[in-house]
Write a protein that binds this DNA or RNA. Sequence first.
DNA 1: TCTGGGGTCCTAGGACCC
DNA 2: TCTGGGGTCCTAGGACCC
Length: 472
Amino acid sequence: MDAFYAAVEQAAKPSLRGKPVIVGGLGPRGVVATASYEARVFGVHSAMPMAQARRLCPNAAYLTPRFGLYRRVSEVVMGLLRELSPLVEPLSLDEAFVDLQAGGAAGETGRWSADAARAVGERLRRDIRAVTGLCGSVGLAGSKMLAKIASEQAKPDGLVVISPGTERALLAPMPVRTLPGVGPATAQTLRRSGIATVGEIAEAGEAELVRLLGRAHGGALYTMARGIDERPVVAERDAKSVSAEDTFDTDLTDRARIQAEIARLADRCVARLRAAGRSGRTVVVKIRSYDFSTLTRSETLRGPTDDPAVVREAAARLVGGVDTTAGVRLLGVGVSGLADFTQEDLFAQAGTRAAGLLGADRPPSPAPPAVGGPAAGRETWEVRHWLPGLDIRHARYGPGWVQGSGLGRVTVRFEQPGSPPGRVRTFAVDDPELEPSEPLPPWGGQASEPAIRPNVMSSSEAGAAAPGTPSP
DNA sequence: TCTGGGGTCCTAGGACCC
DNA sequence: TCTGGGGTCCTAGGACCC
């Protein structure tokens, strides 16, 4: 989506259309989240300190973000994407990868032509505009990296196709920063070695890249510089951490105040953890000092928890071990090592089940049948059992369908025709509670469609009547 | 009026274990 | 008797992304 937050605000506030709009933190230490294209003309861009934006563009409208509204608009757009394919990987509220191949709309040959892909992309852009009143840009290519680069080139309000075979020639003259994963630090390391363009990365060779940037990063960059990117589109991965942090308008020095803020942040973090139905085992505190130096301290508990008191106490201990007397500008509390259960659940289970059946003593995974070589065997076995789109039933969660599988996991969306949109859960592919099931009749299919009308954006703001609000 | 908030992934060293 | 070779887990920091 183009200048998403600002565009939503412009759609909701007719007086701001065609005017510079800047969404972000409005306090003394705020930064720009999104600047409308009208504001970008003045040099304002994302992540810029708000004070600098105000100097550059004093007449813009400065708005505090309304994430609830953006989330609702985002869900409508993501719904349109899911009409193209079950394999949709959101990157943020305003951006996602769609695996069109998995959508099965390529025709009899199963292969996409540039023209067919372009037609699908243009129709999508029309639909997004009709339903939300907003502009989106589309990049189409044979891999995630190239599709992303194409979409950047397409902005604003455009569409770019990168046809197979043209990738390397297209990439070669581009600056290294074009590649995803190349930020300021990597760009400087490369520049010191005389590497400025993507083509020069490819020429440098893998050994040199690994020497400069390390095994993982160097290897990945060398591959991408040659136009190669085999990463699959992965739908709805589980979160790995949850955190809450605040920057204060003025630095904090008072220990009691710092501990009070830490307790508040711990509660906020845990509330979101619980809302997601998760628990976590490692508590992290983050402290940014007056001079912007940042440190973290973490503590791993004996088992996962979603108890606010437990997280508060751990966070208080961790902050207590740090010298904060010179002043802190930011405090944060996070939880990682997430699980779908809590220590309390485990105690409950221990009371009703034989102790030997818990945790590491679960029955071992059944070995994949030996078809072909050992490596090919596992892949074949997974693909055969959990094809995307096939119906499935879980002993506790009920009916659903396979949204994707890989790396020993299967992602299932628990919904059925006539039900509201369902939740996603991920299981081990050999989870004994999962079984294939017969397709359900699609008699209630309409109910799972986003119920929206093209004119919803004209309804009043204040978030009350947002796009995505079901129509009668 | 210098620099948000929410994340992901990688590296590296030490503890610990077999 | 100067000290192997894996592996995992934990902690801390850093780069990067939107």
